[in-house]
Amino acid sequence: MEQSDRSAQQAKEFGKWLHHQLVRRGYELSPRGGGRSAFARDSGIGRATISRILLGQGATDTAVLAQLAEALDRPLSEILVRAGILSAEELAAAQTPDGHRQITPDEAADELGIPTDPTSRRLFNSMVETLRTAPGNDAG
C-alpha cells in the first residue's frame, strides 16, 4: 500500500474513531443534530475542521490535535498515533530518546539472574514494588 493510500486510510479511521468518541459523549452528529457545532464550541476547534476530520479528510495541525486531546480528555500521544502523525514505534522511540525502554520487573530479574522459582520472583517483585512506591521516589 502506497504512503498516500495509507495516509488516506488512517484519516478515515481517525474520522470514524472521533465520530465514536463524540457519540459516546452525547454529541448528536446527525445532519441537523447540532453535535458538530456543540463540540466545536466546547473544544475551541472550528466547526469546519471538525467536519473535515469526521469526513476522513485528516488533521495534521498539531495545535488542533492538542485541543482535541484536551477536549476528549485523552493523551496527546494517543491522538497523534490515531491521526497517523506518529506511528506507535515512533512514539515509543520519542518517549525513550536515549534508546532505553523501561523493562518489567520480571525482565530485570532475568537480567540479574534471579532464580525463576515462584518464591524468589515474588520476593524480588515485592522489593521492586516497595522501592517504586517509597516516599521521595519519583518513579512511582
Rank of each mutant, 00 (worst) to 15 (best):
E2C: 10
S4L: 12
D5T: 15
S7W: 12
Q9L: 13
A11Q: 08
A11N: 14
K12H: 09
K12E: 12
K12A: 11
E13H: 10
F14R: 05
G15Y: 01
W17C: 01
H19W: 05
H20G: 13
H20M: 12
Q21N: 10
V23W: 06
R24A: 12
R25F: 02
G26S: 05
Y27H: 05
Y27C: 07
E28T: 14
E28Q: 13
L29S: 06
S30C: 09
P31A: 06
P31R: 09
G33W: 04
G34T: 04
G35Y: 00
R36N: 08
S37G: 15
S37Q: 15
F39N: 00
F39Y: 03
A40P: 08
A40F: 03
D42I: 00
S43T: 03
G46C: 09
R47S: 13
R47P: 11
R47F: 03
T49C: 10
I50H: 01
R52S: 14
I53F: 04
L54I: 05
L54M: 06
L55P: 08
L55R: 15
L55A: 15
G58K: 02
D61L: 01
T62W: 03
T62E: 15
A63D: 14
A66F: 04
A66K: 10
Q67W: 02
Q67S: 12
A71E: 03
L72A: 03
L72D: 02
D73T: 13
D73M: 06
P75E: 15
P75T: 11
P75F: 08
L76S: 07
E78H: 09
I79Q: 06
V81Q: 07
R82W: 03
R82S: 08
R82A: 12
G84K: 10
I85C: 09
L86D: 09
S87P: 03
A88R: 09
A88G: 10
E89N: 05
L91I: 02
L91W: 00
A93M: 06
A93P: 00
A93S: 07
A93L: 08
A94N: 09
T96W: 05
T96L: 05
P97K: 02
P97H: 01
P97N: 01
G99P: 06
G99W: 00
G99Y: 01
H100T: 13
Q102C: 10
I103T: 13
T104F: 02
P105W: 01
P105K: 02
D106N: 09
D106F: 04
A108W: 07
A109F: 00
D110P: 04
E111F: 12
E111V: 14
E111Q: 15
L112R: 13
L112D: 10
D117H: 02
P118F: 00
T119N: 11
T119S: 12
S120L: 01
R121L: 06
R121F: 00
R121P: 01
L123Y: 03
S126K: 06
S126H: 07
M127R: 09
M127V: 13
M127D: 10
E129S: 12
T130Y: 12
T130L: 13
L131H: 05
R132S: 10
T133S: 14
T133F: 07
A134E: 09
A134K: 05
A134P: 02
P135E: 06
P135G: 02
P135I: 01
N137D: 04
D138V: 14
D138W: 06
A139H: 10
A139Y: 09
G140M: 06
G140Y: 11
